[in-house]
């Protein structure tokens, strides 16, 4: 019974880790919206929320890793699970990095570039949500993994297309080159979120195949 109780605690920790990663997508969207609308206080609050999610996810990941090794749990899948958690942590870290860039650089974002940014953020945030769903499925509903992995890939392509359009319009416009490069780097950073989600999804597919054999 003690064994099953410990297992429930670990499941709970894993769920909270997934929650933190998933929420990072929501906080990212809200944070970018606040920045674009010039709501400085709200934006600062979002930065704090993102830091809290990252710190919580870090703590949970380390605790889960330690327990998996200390209690010799899931010996067959332990390595795969640790890689998955690290990659999800990387996705969350990149979401935080986008908000940090806005906070540190305080870039001026002119129209129509400002209108193009939320759809890009939405596609990357959706990729985060889908990789979290696929990861949850890996633990309890293996057949559902492929469906959400497919959606991650879809949103990565969507983010890629929006990013390319934004950069093309940006460099065709009349801003200073330095300003163009600054905004282009922000587009890169947002796109990187969905790229990292896709990397995690690629690894997850292999882990799921290994588990199903």
């Amino acid at each position: 019974m003690k064994l099953f109780q410990r297992t429930r605690e670990l499941e709970d920790q894993l769920d909270r880790f997934f929650d933190a990663v998933s929420e990072s997508g929501l906080v990212l969207r809200a944070g970018v919206d606040d920045y674009l609308a010039g709501r400085a206080d709200e934006f600062a609050r979002r930065i704090g929320e993102m830091r809290e999610r990252e710190s919580r996810a870090d703590d949970l990941r380390h605790e889960i890793e330690n327990r998996l090794y200390a209690e010799s749990l899931i010996p067959e899948q332990r390595g795969d699970v640790l890689v998955l958690l690290e990659r999800l942590d990387g996705v969350l870290g990149q979401a935080k990095s986008v908000l940090k860039t806005l906070e540190v650089q305080q870039p001026e974002i002119p129209q129509p570039f400002a209108d193009g940014l939320p759809p890009l953020v939405a596609a990357s945030a959706e990729a985060i949500e889908r990789i979290v769903r696929a990861s949850r499925a890996f633990f309890s509903e293996l057949e559902a993994v492929q469906n959400d992995v497919h959606k991650v890939r879809y949103f990565e392509k969507e983010a890629d297309a929006i990013g390319t359009r934004l950069r093309r319009d940006l460099f065709a416009g009349g801003l200073e080159l330095a300003h163009k490069l600054q905004l282009s780097h922000i587009v890169d950073a947002i796109e990187e979120i969905s790229d990292l989600a896709e990397d995690a999804a690629d690894a997850l597919v292999i882990f799921a195949i290994k588990r199903s054999v």
Binding site: L3, F4, R6, T7, R8, L10, E11, L14, L73, I74, Q77, V81, F138, F139, S140, E141, R211
Partner: peptide, 14 residues
């Protein structure tokens, strides 16, 4: 059964 991997592991130990 769609049992959680951790619970499956505990069941396997038992």
């Amino acid at each position: 059964s769609r049992v959680h991997l951790f619970r499956f592991d505990a069941g396997l130990r038992a």
